[in-house]
Design a protein around this nucleic acid. Structure first.
Lengths: 231, 231
DNA sequence: TAAAAAATATGAGATATATCATAACATATT
DNA sequence: AATATGTTATGATATATCTCATATTTTTTA
């Protein structure tokens, strides 16, 4: 669903300085003019793998997953993105078409800036280009580090890692509503649904977490962190 | 070992246009002036994890591995780099210290450009910044794609993938000298040495490859490609 | 609101991979 | 040249994870 930009007060948007701090008013205005905001409901696909990339996207609210679907229809989740993230920056300069799909995990607000306008500004403002360079570098670095860390872990370590990710990075609370299914946790860490569920149950039996449907409470953070580190 | 840059004819270096096509003569001269060339023998560490990043590096000749060492001393290989690759571009804009080590797998020639000079040029030439942006994006995209593809495969598929990488991307020959040990293949695909060796033996028994110490000949490319795809 | 579909839960058995052991061979070191 | 160290090789066994099956609960759809 499209929102008129008049509704939004972009001039004082928190992302004005966070993302576009290097731009002068004229440049910012051209970005702003090429922008549309969209709201997506839980489950909606924002961009599908293979689709042409014609905008620069960033999140203002919500939660999304970046994922790939293989030939036999199985998904692999690349990452979970939160407000402030540039959800297509990983592909924007290396591909003309999306190499992954993007779907909303909860109600999500996305800013969509026409790609040619965005690139025009990048090409004419080297400070901004440098800032984009730093960001893209950080994103890829984090993605690669995360994948590498996961590859070393066995299932318990991987599940602990994901629980900590939601508790510490997404919700900043030891009690939270898990926004993805057990199957999706499996798609995120390359394990089967059954084994994710079994591991959750095991953590529950061991008093590390409490489970109430989608609501998860971390009871023993120390132990969970230790499992994340060692296994 | 350091080489005087006078020995090298940088002005007509093939990388002049490949890497620095967007620079004018003055900019290129400042890069050139801040550059030193080094030769590393097989096995030598070029940069160690944790070391301060104070140069932009690219390879002119040879083969290197990028790798991380975990607490218990086990290595994980991030990627194998060849001539033309920017071996530290993944970290240069996101970290002040190396997050991986770089070691030579064969005699390797590395150009080392002082980082502050390189960044100065990036910041003042947005065309060049844009070109660096494209490159860094491609590198991270390839690294992430490769990791993701591997995560889906079982050991046979992973080994097939690595054999094809050396045959098609590195040596462009069905017969080549494997530049890494079986242990290193394992570090590259997150499998144990024994299972890599067993898989090589199995491929040999199945008539897919011929083994003569480090020399590997791919006998049945079609089947190997199929294993890479499906398994 | 009922019916269908998806998600959670758990067990048993199958399979892939790791671990440990041992040996032959190759490479590096003294 | 002799010795030590690392690499390749293979077998036996242990372990982790997957697959298939079935039941219950929750969510979605009609």
């Amino acid at each position: 669903m499209k929102i008129s930009k008049d509704i939004l007060n972009c001039k004082h948007c928190v992302y004005r300085s966070l993302l576009f701090g290097q731009l002068d008013d004229k440049e910012y205005e051209s970005i702003n003019h090429a922008r549309t905001e969209y709201v997506f409901k839980r489950g909606e696909v924002i961009k599908a793998e293979g689709e042409n990339i014609n905008s620069f996207l960033y999140m203002r609210k919500g939660l999304v997953k970046l994922y790939k679907t293989n030939k036999i229809g199985k998904d692999q989740i690349l990452s979970i993105n939160k407000p402030g993230d540039f959800i297509n920056l990983l592909n924007i300069f290396s591909n003309s078409n999306y190499k992954y799909s993007i779907a909303a995990l909860e109600e999500t607000l996305v800013c969509d800036v026409k790609l040619n306008v965005f690139i025009e500004v990048v090409r004419n403002n080297s400070d901004f280009a440098f800032s984009v360079l730093n960001r893209i570098s950080k994103i890829s670095d984090e993605t690669i580090e995360r994948r590498f860390a996961l590859a070393q872990k066995q299932i318990k370590g991987r599940v602990a890692n994901i629980l900590l990710f939601f508790a510490e990075e997404v919700y900043r609370d030891n009690k939270f509503r898990m926004p993805i299914t057990r199957r999706e946790v499996g798609e995120l860490v390359s394990m089967t649904t059954e084994n994710i569920i079994r591991t959750f149950s095991e953590f529950r039996k061991d008093g590390i977490i409490a489970l109430d449907g989608k609501i998860i409470t971390i009871l023993d953070l120390k132990r969970l962190k230790n499992i994340n580190k060692t296994g």
